[in-house]
Amino acid sequence: MQYKLVINGKTLKGETTTKAVDAETAEKAFKQYANDNGVDGVWTYDDATKTFTVTE
């Protein structure tokens, strides 16, 4: 399945996608991506759209 990440950071904004077997695996990949880019915020997930959002 394909999952999307929407980033609403202080210095980084945008979107990225990943393919993963489940939401938990996608979340780990997205959190690593956010961490690598210095984004630390509040996470939400919408199962209907398979979209994670992180807001600083």
Rank of each mutant, 00 (worst) to 15 (best):
K4C: 07
N8L: 13
Y45C: 01
E56C: 06
K28D: 05
M1N: 14
G38E: 07
T18Y: 13
M1D: 15
A48P: 06
T11H: 13
V6D: 03
M1V: 13
V39P: 02
T11E: 09
V21C: 10
L5W: 02
G9Q: 05
A48C: 08
N8S: 08
T25N: 08
E24F: 11
N35K: 15
D46M: 04
V54L: 10
K31F: 06
V21D: 11
W43P: 00
T44Q: 09
F52E: 00
T55G: 04
V21P: 15
A34S: 04
Y33E: 03
K10M: 12
V6N: 05
T55P: 01
L12N: 08
G9R: 04
A20K: 03
D47I: 09
M1I: 15
Q2P: 07
T11C: 14
A48V: 11
E27F: 15
L12Q: 09
M1T: 14
A23R: 14
K50D: 02
A29Y: 15
Q2S: 10
Q2G: 06
T49K: 06
K4S: 07
E24N: 10
E27H: 11
T51W: 02
W43E: 00
K10S: 10
G41M: 03
L12Y: 13
A26E: 00
D46H: 06
A26P: 01
K19F: 15
A48G: 08
T18G: 04
K50T: 04
T16A: 12
G9A: 10
K13E: 05
V6T: 05
N37A: 13
F52A: 00
T16I: 15
G14K: 13
D36C: 09
A29N: 10
K4A: 05
A29T: 14
A23Q: 11
A26M: 01
D40G: 09
A48D: 11
D46Q: 05
V6E: 04
Y33M: 05
A34Y: 03
I7P: 01
Q2A: 08
A23M: 13
T53M: 08
F52I: 02
Y3Q: 01
T18D: 03
A23C: 12
V39W: 08
T55R: 05
V54N: 01
K19N: 14
D22H: 04
A26Q: 01
A20Q: 05
T25C: 07
T16Q: 10
T49W: 04
T17I: 10
M1K: 11
D22W: 03
D22C: 05
A26H: 00
Y45G: 00
E27V: 07
D47L: 07
L12R: 07
M1H: 14
V39F: 09
